[in-house]
Computed example of a mutant assay.
Amino acid sequence: MIFGHDTEAALQAAVALVNSDGDPDALTTVQAVDAWYAEHRYTGRRDRDERELEELRALRPVLRDLFTTDRDRAAGLVNDMLAEAGALPQLVRHGDEDWHLHAIGTDAPLARRVIVEVAMAMVDVVRLDEMSRLSLCADENCRGVVLDLTRNRSRRFCSTACANRNAVAAYRARKNR
């Protein structure tokens, strides 16, 4: 494990959120937010309305920018995000999760909690100089973000679909030579 569990979980949830902005868009309904929320084991306040959906959708370009910028700019963005949200880091334990860090109350709106959790995760990424763990998908027709948590830093594609599509294309190119 490169990062702590809570850091990896926040990064994975954020990358999934960013990558939901594809063709087709995978985050267009409150039910899609429900599925994302459950998959990434979020807890706390849920308004389950169109406003919450739109606030999460609005985070996608902000997070994409954070994940694809250089280390110095990422540090500045993280500082701005934490300051704007009034983050106050505290150790918490809930459910089956042992002690971990939260920096905003569970009663805050979901989009604000997401941005603070991602900012806190990016603190570790920046401090450990691991920005290379975040990149864009190697599929030239994809805009997805890749979170590479492999030991040898070998992940190049945002999804199995992109990896398979490129493997098939490479196979066909070799076969047609």
Rank of each mutant, 00 (worst) to 15 (best):
G76L: 04
Y42Q: 13
R71N: 12
D34E: 11
R51V: 12
D25E: 11
L59C: 02
W36N: 00
Y42K: 09
L59G: 01
T43A: 06
D34M: 09
T68L: 15
R71D: 14
H40L: 05
S20K: 07
A75C: 14
W36Q: 00
P24M: 01
R41N: 07
N79R: 12
G44R: 09
R46W: 06
M81A: 15
A26K: 11
T29A: 10
A83E: 12
L63I: 13
R41M: 09
N79Y: 03
A85R: 03
R48W: 03
V30K: 08
L63H: 03
R60H: 05
E39H: 13
A35W: 02
D80W: 00
L27M: 13
F67G: 13
T68N: 11
G86W: 06
T28R: 14
E52R: 02
G22E: 06
T68G: 15
V33G: 00
A32V: 03
E55Y: 01
W36F: 01
M81I: 07
G76T: 09
Q31K: 09
Y42N: 06
S20Y: 07
D21Y: 10
D65R: 15
L63W: 12
L53V: 01
V62G: 03
R57I: 08
L27H: 06
A38G: 13
W36M: 00
R57A: 00
T43G: 13
L82R: 13
A58L: 05
T43M: 11
A85M: 02
A38H: 04
T28I: 11
L82M: 11
M81P: 00
V62M: 06
D21S: 14
H40Q: 04
R45E: 13
T69R: 15
R46K: 06
G76Y: 04
F67Y: 10
P61W: 00
R60P: 11
E54I: 03
R71V: 10
V33R: 08
G86Y: 00
L53C: 04
Q31W: 05
S20H: 11
L56Q: 07
E52V: 00
V62H: 04
D23I: 09
L27W: 00
V33M: 03
D47P: 06
L77V: 13
A85H: 06
T68M: 08
R73K: 14
V62A: 10
A32Y: 00
D70R: 11
V78M: 04
L82N: 05
S20F: 03
G44E: 08
T43W: 15
A32C: 04
D49W: 02
H40N: 07
L66P: 07
A35P: 03
D80N: 14
R73E: 14
L56K: 01
L77C: 09
E55G: 04
R46P: 03
R51S: 08
D80H: 09
F67S: 10
D70K: 07
E55H: 12
T28E: 13
V30P: 06
G22W: 08
Y42A: 15
R64C: 02
E84P: 03
D47I: 02
D25L: 07
L66M: 05
